[in-house]
Design a protein around this nucleic acid. Structure first.
Length: 560
DNA sequence: AGTTTCGGCGCC
DNA sequence: AAAGGGCGCCGAAACT
């Protein structure tokens, strides 16, 4: 097992490295090396680098052209282990873990860095509290012991490995960036919004729509101020409680049309307009900062640029380099397939064992051919719908797929009761809503309330408890899907190694690979194979298939 | 004046 | 038809 080495930056700009034994302890002397990149490059036989934080080490390696095969991110693992142990909220830095191990005062985690539009890469900033290699390894060895002590050590090992792989992928994607044509983006903006006026006010089309709305109301109305709009409707004799689209849509008034059009375009203007372009696009690349494991469910988040919310019309500007292509791949009905795999419901597994449209198959079995109803029912079950058609359809779903529905029901009950809820691989849901906890903690009020100690009974749970139930219900599906997606990324990354192709985008169930035209077909194959492998690795032997819709395009907008 | 929360909506 | 899960982002409003 000398293929596993540890690495820690030293104060002098060099690094300490050491080979590791199977127990996680050094299997040889610690060596100080002056050049971090050379320290890695000169050891091609190392298959996994153990380090405190990928964000601390990997950017500078990538900057010198050095990639690593695998990593073990100690702070990512600490977060997962603490969660698994029901110790959410304890500081998760390696320094804190060491202090717990040695019995010293536990340092709080350093505050999260805020997003900085246009900031040059965060690549060289020191992040977190550095730790000498020998201390780091004490934490690592203890983590291996803690992993062995979990109920499913095999899954927990897979989870920490997958999360670490995600950190590598995120760092590599941050470096690559998504190919972006600023000129195309500007053309789209001009097309939608019209000319910009000097002085930074709203562009022509928005000004016109605001005029139209005001004319319809017979007085000046600012469409971007909800309170103003609600008042204007009231004066017109129409009672609305908000200006949300679904509420306004059904109102019969001439102002509605321009108002809704304004809101749609206003959103593009403020969130993905000219200033966005200025802030986030450099040298033909859109560079958000992807953060693996940024949410409790294991989904990623991005820091800046709203990369996971790019409106469809704006995707026109994501264009491959000349001679290159974007391979856009989207997992088909990922969440119900994951539900089939984790619940082992025979009927749902049978349906998910096909590559054809899952919602259509569910509909054929339980909803006499109405696909839309079937989709609504499945998503309602996963999201914890409490009323409406989805609830009615849930009964049909329950009859045909009882184990699947029972599985999410049980997760919801566990969440309401404050029990630990885990994804398939063992990522653990916070026992109560984080925001509430934080607020309570900050106010210095004890976290427990009478609600929390009240036993769960159907129909009696408090609003908060029900919200926790919905959260937990969704968590097991969304989180297990994130488990699978991480394994997919890890597998795909390995296959792409040695090709010119680069992973440039990842959004929950969708990946984009930028590659030379002649590699595109190989990339498509690699994605399908990675999906199969991820399915087997994550869920073991399962009939469930994870098909992808793939498109080889020059422009992201042409993918769907 | 600076910071936090809210409303609304984009994506999955 | 009704408003359930996860996020980020922006300007305005509501605070300190």
């Amino acid at each position: 097992m000398t293929d596993r080495w540890a690495l820690a930056p030293a104060e002098d700009g060099g690094v300490d490295v050491a080979p590791l034994g199977p127990d996680g302890l050094p299997a040889g002397p610690v060596r100080r090396e002056a050049d971090p990149a050379e320290a890695v490059r000169s050891r091609p036989g190392v298959t996994r680098w153990v380090w405190r934080s990928t964000a601390e080490v990997y950017p500078r390696l990538l900057a010198t052209g050095v990639r690593v095969e695998r990593a073990y991110d100690i702070e990512a693992a600490e977060t997962l282990l603490l969660g698994h142990e029901g110790r959410y909220g304890e500081p998760r830095s390696a320094a804190a873990a060491l202090a717990r191990l040695r019995g010293g005062p536990v340092p709080p985690d350093p505050p999260q860095r805020a997003a900085e539009p246009g900031a040059q890469s965060p690549l060289f900033e020191p992040q977190g509290i550095p730790l000498p290699l020998t201390d780091l390894l004490a934490v690592y060895a203890e983590q291996l012991r803690r992993t062995d002590a979990t109920a499913r050590p095999d899954r927990m090992r897979l989870l920490t490995a997958a999360e670490s792989a995600g950190m590598l992928v995120a760092t590599e994607m941050n470096r690559a960036g998504l190919p972006w044509r600023a000129d195309v983006h500007r053309a789209v903006l001009h097309d939608l919004l019209g000319e910009r006026y000097a002085g930074g006010g709203e562009p022509r089309r928005l000004a016109e729509l605001a005029e139209e709305g005001s004319a319809a109301f017979g007085r000046r109305v600012r469409p971007d101020l909800p309170a103003d709009v609600v008042k204007a409707f009231a004066q017109a004799g129409i009672k609305v409680t908000s200006t949300r689209r679904w509420e306004i849509e059904s109102v019969d008034h001439p102002a509605v049309k321009p108002l809704l059009e304004y809101k749609k375009l206003y959103r593009i203007w403020v969130a993905h307009g000219w200033s966005w372009l200025q802030d986030w696009v450099r040298e033909g690349r859109f560079r958000p900062e992807f953060l693996a494991g940024g949410t409790v469910t294991g989904r990623w988040v991005t820091n800046g640029g709203g990369a996971l919310q790019i409106p469809k019309v704006i995707r026109r500007a994501a264009v491959a380099d000349p001679g290159w292509r974007l391979v856009v791949a989207d997992a088909d009905q990922m969440e119900p397939r994951v539900l089939a795999a984790i619940s082992r419901d025979p009927g749902l597994m049978e349906v998910a064992g096909r590559e054809t449209d899952l919602y259509q198959s569910v509909s054929d079995r339980a909803f006499s051919g109405d696909r839309a109803q079937a989709k609504l029912a499945v998503l309602g079950a996963v999201y914890g719908q409490t009323s409406g058609d989805g609830l009615k359809n849930l009964a049909a779903l329950r009859r045909r797929f009882p184990k699947a529905v029972a599985f999410v029901d049980e997760a919801a009950r566990a969440g309401e009761e404050g029990r630990l809820v885990r994804t398939w691989l063992g990522r653990t849901c916070p026992p109560a809503a984080r925001a509430t906890d934080d607020a309570v903690e900050e106010a210095g009020i004890p976290a427990a309330s009478d609600e929390d100690s009240r036993p769960w009974t159907p129909g009696y749970a408090s609003t908060d408890a029900r919200a926790r139930g919905r959260f937990a219900r969704n968590f097991v599906v969304q989180g297990s899907a994130a488990d699978w997606a991480l394994l997919l990324l890890a597998a795909l990354r390995q296959t792409l190694n040695g090709m010119a192709a680069e992973l440039v985008f990842f959004q929950h169930d969708e990946v984009i690979v930028h590659c030379p035209e002649e590699e595109a077909e190989a990339v498509v194959t690699a994605i399908r194979e990675a999906a199969d492998l991820a399915g087997r690795l994550t869920f073991g032997e399962t009939p469930v298939r994870f098909p992808f819709t793939t498109a080889v395009v020059e422009c992201y907008a042409d993918a769907k």
